[in-house]
Simulated scan of single mutants.
Amino acid sequence: MLNADRHNLIIDLLKRRGSVKLKDLTELADSSESTIRRDLAELEENGLLKRVHGGAILTQARTIEMSMVEKSVKNVREKKDIAKLAASLVKDGDCIYLDAGSTTFEMIDFLIGRDVTVVTNGLMHVEELVSLDLNAYILGGKMKAKTKAVIGGIAMENIANYRFDKAFIGANGIHLNDGYTTPDMEEALLKRKAAELADETFVLADNSKMHHSHFAKMFDLEEATLITDYINVEEKEIWMKKIDIMEAEK
């Protein structure tokens, strides 16, 4: 395979997955590990990706955020699997916080028929919860048109009135040094407050969020349990707390 063809293959995979593994690239490109490493180095020099241990991630601006519609069509199967596992942790009688986001939204179908009380800052979430006859409250405040999330000072005041058995929170970036991050500072503050008000906090994120870091920090890795679909084998032991659906199904 020519250099240009390999480069196009790598970038195409990154656009679809958000991250790629060195092992997968060597197999797909039918090339040696040293060749792929050189390709990744060249692409990184051109600002097209960032190399990480065992592969590469797509570079992106720290303040850019996809809309709810854009998020909802990415990694759908992985999000549903993560959501199903997260919902299995909810007990009848629980009061939970469901953060606005595409992966937390997928939890709702798995809560049907359950005796739970849900507080959310997601407009799409509360509409779905109510339509399915689930007991739901929505925070008041400023509505983000792009993500349908309620944020701001009023939302911070509202959420202080609740206490949660569990909080399920989405993240745009997960980084060993930077912790859990998101592009919007106001949204990060609300996520942090929800975690403080919960007995247990879970972050729901598919593997495309790994190694990314965005503008606003939510909290450190050890402050929540990560529920994800897959973590590189070499990295599994360095995450503070996690539930991997591949391990949970064994």
Rank of each mutant, 00 (worst) to 15 (best):
50 K>T: 02
69 V>A: 11
80 K>P: 00
79 K>N: 04
70 E>S: 11
75 N>G: 03
49 L>M: 08
75 N>L: 12
73 V>Y: 04
62 R>N: 08
60 Q>K: 15
74 K>G: 00
51 R>F: 03
48 L>Q: 12
75 N>D: 05
60 Q>M: 13
74 K>H: 09
72 S>A: 13
68 M>D: 10
49 L>C: 07
72 S>D: 11
56 A>E: 03
70 E>I: 11
61 A>T: 05
78 E>S: 14
72 S>N: 09
49 L>T: 04
79 K>T: 11
71 K>F: 04
65 E>Y: 04
48 L>C: 06
71 K>P: 01
76 V>M: 09
69 V>G: 01
45 E>Y: 03
78 E>I: 06
59 T>Q: 06
74 K>M: 14
49 L>A: 09
71 K>E: 15
69 V>T: 09
43 L>G: 04
54 G>K: 12
72 S>L: 07
46 N>W: 08
78 E>G: 12
80 K>D: 09
55 G>T: 07
59 T>M: 11
79 K>V: 13
57 I>V: 15
73 V>S: 05
47 G>W: 09
48 L>Y: 08
46 N>R: 15
49 L>I: 06
45 E>D: 12
46 N>M: 14
52 V>A: 01
82 I>Q: 06
44 E>A: 09
60 Q>D: 05
58 L>V: 04
79 K>F: 07
53 H>C: 02
79 K>G: 07
